[in-house]
């Protein structure tokens, strides 16, 4: 069961990373008309369409992570502490706090992405998406590296 939950945590995280990256790139690096290469098509999406998917995937990823967290605490973390891998353990501490900030941001994220989009909040929308993308990417990177060091 734990393995299943952990795999689900990883799969949801990858999907979330894809969704938030699509949204962030379409806002911060919009595709120009007539450019049809892979990256341009990746960016040429309607950012607002990703909002609900990002919220659902974030909550799912977070929930799966919160369920498997205790097994990390008494397994992988103890192993890393014994090896005095302080920076690695600290990276996970940062991850847990950043994703918590991200979870708290979701209601505001939803609020500013409601239809019809308020033009005066465009900068706020872009910066919330950028923050969420940074939180998600850093959390994924830390989770990936830690799992390579010692799986749950």
């Amino acid at each position: 069961m734990l393995t299943f939950l952990f795999v689900m945590h990883g799969l949801c995280a990858i999907t979330l990373m894809g969704a938030i990256t699509h949204q962030a790139l379409s806002l911060w690096w919009p595709a120009r008309a007539g450019n049809a290469n892979f990256m341009a098509r990746f960016r040429a999406v309607k950012a607002a369409n990703y909002t609900n998917a990002v919220i659902v995937l974030f909550i799912l990823t977070f929930t799966f992570g919160a369920i498997v967290y205790p097994s990390y605490r008494i397994g992988a973390r103890v192993y890393m502490e014994n090896l005095k891998m302080s920076a690695v353990v600290g990276s996970f501490e940062m991850k847990e706090h950043l994703v918590s900030f991200g979870l708290g941001l979701l209601p505001a994220y939803w609020y500013f992405w409601r239809q019809p989009l308020a033009p005066q909040h465009e900068t706020t929308r872009k910066l919330i998406v950028l923050l969420l993308a940074l939180f998600v990417w850093s959390a994924f990177f830390v989770g990936y590296v830690l799992n390579n060091i010692r799986g749950v």
């Binding site: 501490e93 900030f101 923050l131």
Partner: peptide, 25 residues
């Protein structure tokens, strides 16, 4: 100002980085 919703998390992240610095030596 609606920008508080991103200014506050940015500030919190900076404070967090300072708090957690001891893990990184």
């Amino acid at each position: 100002w609606s920008g508080w919703v991103w200014v506050v998390p940015v500030a919190l992240t900076l404070v967090l980085t300072y708090i957690e610095r001891t893990w990184f030596g």
